[in-house]
């Protein structure tokens, strides 16, 4: 079952539609662990029920895997795990939200697992405060602002930073990355000077390669 998010905006009357900024002020709020977060409605494309995910090996653990979205293969990120390192337990209300991310190579769809989708809310620009420079649980560049909602704050996520494809693709898999030694000269690896550092690539190469001759 999918809940097309367009609904939230498609039901607008013509008069309301005149106000283009209306959409820009709307946010999808959802819960990760105990925290409420929000993503601009213009960036969210679809909400899916949780479904089996094909795991992709040798990726960081928070890259949960991929799903089939009507013929397109979309990566699934465990967002809470990206924030705090603990894998999210899938519960009855868990959902997958498809988000559109702007990167160096254009737009791309990435999906995130959330514990519960809350609602679509309007947060006018004047009700949004800049992200605090410290004291937040997540990296400050992940926060686009703090939205005031019924006397409480929601963290409005800077999706392009949180789900930066450039950054995510550069991160090393934390599991067995034996593949690294399959290719002695990977493009992404360090320059030879870095070899002394306890980089995971070189570590494995050293421990796995026995000297036979």
């Amino acid at each position: 079952m999918t809940l097309p998010i367009e609904k939230a905006t498609a039901d607008l009357t013509p008069q309301q539609k005149q106000d283009v900024s209306e959409e820009a002020n709307q946010y999808l709020t959802f819960r990760l662990r105990d925290e409420m977060y929000a993503i601009g409605i213009l960036r969210t494309k679809e909400i899916l029920e949780y479904r089996p995910i094909t795991q992709v090996p040798m990726m960081p653990d928070f890259v949960h895997g991929v799903i089939n979205l009507r013929g397109a293969v979309v990566p699934v990120i465990d967002l809470a795990m990206r924030f705090d390192g603990a894998r999210t337990k899938i519960r009855k209300r868990s959902c997958i939200v498809i988000v559109e991310v702007e990167g160096n190579n254009g737009r791309q769809d990435i999906s995130i697992i959330v514990d519960e989708v809350s609602e679509v809310v309007s947060i006018p620009a004047e009700e949004i405060e800049p992200s605090p420079s410290f004291g937040t649980r997540i990296r400050t560049d992940f926060i686009a602002g703090m939205g005031k909602l019924e006397g409480d704050f929601v963290i409005i996520l800077a999706v392009d930073n949180v789900l930066s494809v450039d950054e995510l693709s550069r991160l090393e898999g934390s599991g067995n990355d034996a593949h690294a030694k399959a290719l002695p000269f990977e493009p992404k690896t360090q320059s030879p000077d870095d070899e002394d550092q306890p980089d995971s690539d070189t570590m494995h190469i050293e421990t796995d390669s026995d000297t036979d001759q």
Binding site: V56, P57, M58, M59, V63, V66, G71, A72, V73, V74, P75, G103, N105, Q108, I110, V165, L168, S169, R170, H179, A180, A182, L183, E186, K188
Partner: peptide, 12 residues
């Protein structure tokens, strides 16, 4: 289906 840029560094 391409896996996309996120997996561009993935080998194997």
């Amino acid at each position: 289906k391409p896996l996309g840029q996120l997996f561009s560094q993935l080998q194997g």
